[in-house]
C-alpha cells in the first residue's frame, strides 16, 4: 500500500511537472510554430494548463499561509494559557492589529508607528553585527582569501566617502564594482540558475522526492 502511494504521488508529480514545463515553454508563443495553420489557437491551448495550475497553486499557497498563521496563534494561545508573557504579548499584538485593520481600513499609521520603526531598528542592529563580523574575518580566517575579502570590503566602503583625498580610490572602487564584481556576480547568478535547473529537473524526474515529507 505504501509503495502504491509513493508510486501514485511520483506519477502525479511527473505528469503535472512535465505538463507545466511544456505549457510554460511552448504556450503563448505562436512564433515558435512557424507557418503552421492555427498557430495562435494551438499556442493559446498549450498555455492553458500552466495558467490553470499556477492559479491553483497560488490559491493553495494562500490558503496554507492562512492555515500557518492559525497554527502560530494556536501554539501561542496554548502558551498564553500557561501564562507565558511573550506569547500573550504576541497574541495581543496580533489581535490589536486585526482590530485596527477591521475598524480603520486604509489607516496605515499603526504600520508607521510600530512595524516600520521595529524593522528599521532591527536592520540597524544588523549593521553592528555585520561590522563585528567583518572585523572578525581576519581573526578566524587569516589567509589570502580572508585578506582579499577584507581588502575589497574596505575599498568599497572607503570609495563611498565623499572626500577629495579619496578620489583615486573611488575610481578603483568603481572599476572593482563594474568589472571583477560584475563578473563574479554573473558567475554566482549563473551558478544559481544552473542549480535551479538541475534541482528542478531532479524533482520533475522524481529523483528528488522532497514532497514525501
Amino acid at each position: 500500500m505504501r509503495r502504491m502511494g509513493i508510486a501514485f504521488s511520483a506519477s502525479v508529480a511527473f505528469a503535472v511537472g512535465v505538463l507545466t514545463l511544456i505549457s510554460l515553454l511552448l504556450g503563448d508563443h505562436p512564433e515558435l510554430y512557424g507557418n503552421v495553420a492555427g498557430a495562435e489557437i494551438w499556442a493559446g491551448l498549450l498555455a492553458l494548463p500552466a495558467a490553470v495550475l499556477l492559479r491553483l497553486v497560488t490559491l493553495t499557497v494562500a490558503v496554507t499561509i492562512v492555515i500557518g498563521i492559525v497554527n502560530l496563534l494556536h501554539v501561542h494561545a496554548g502558551r498564553g494559557l500557561r501564562r507565558q508573557f511573550y506569547s500573550i504579548v504576541m497574541i495581543a499584538s496580533f489581535a490589536f492589529t486585526m482590530y485596527w485593520y477591521l475598524t480603520r481600513q486604509g489607516d496605515t499609521s499603526l504600520l508607521a508607528a510600530v512595524q516600520v520603526p521595529i524593522e528599521s531598528a532591527l536592520a540597524a542592529l544588523l549593521f553592528l553585527s555585520m561590522a563585528q563580523g567583518g572585523a572578525r574575518v581576519m581573526k578566524k580566517r587569516a589567509d589570502i582569501w580572508g585578506l582579499l575579502f577584507v581588502t575589497v570590503m574596505v575599498i568599497v566602503l572607503l570609495g563611498t566617502l565623499p572626500l577629495p583625498a579619496l578620489a583615486p580610490l573611488r575610481e578603483w572602487s568603481d572599476w572593482l564594482m563594474d568589472i571583477p564584481v560584475g563578473a563574479g556576480a554573473r558567475a554566482i547568478l549563473l551558478g544559481i540558475a544552473l542549480g535551479t535547473v538541475v534541482a528542478g529537473v531532479r524533482i520533475l524526474l522524481g529523483q528528488d522526492r522532497s514532497y514525501r515529507g
Binding site: 508529480a13 511537472g17 510554460l24 499556477l54 491553483l56 528542478g200 524533482i203 520533475l204 522532497s210
Partner: peptide, 13 residues
C-alpha cells in the same frame, strides 16, 4: 504537495 512543488520547480526552471 507534489503538485505544489513540481509546479514551483517547473516555473523556477
Amino acid at each position: 504537495l507534489a503538485v505544489l512543488i513540481v509546479v514551483g520547480a517547473a516555473t523556477a526552471v
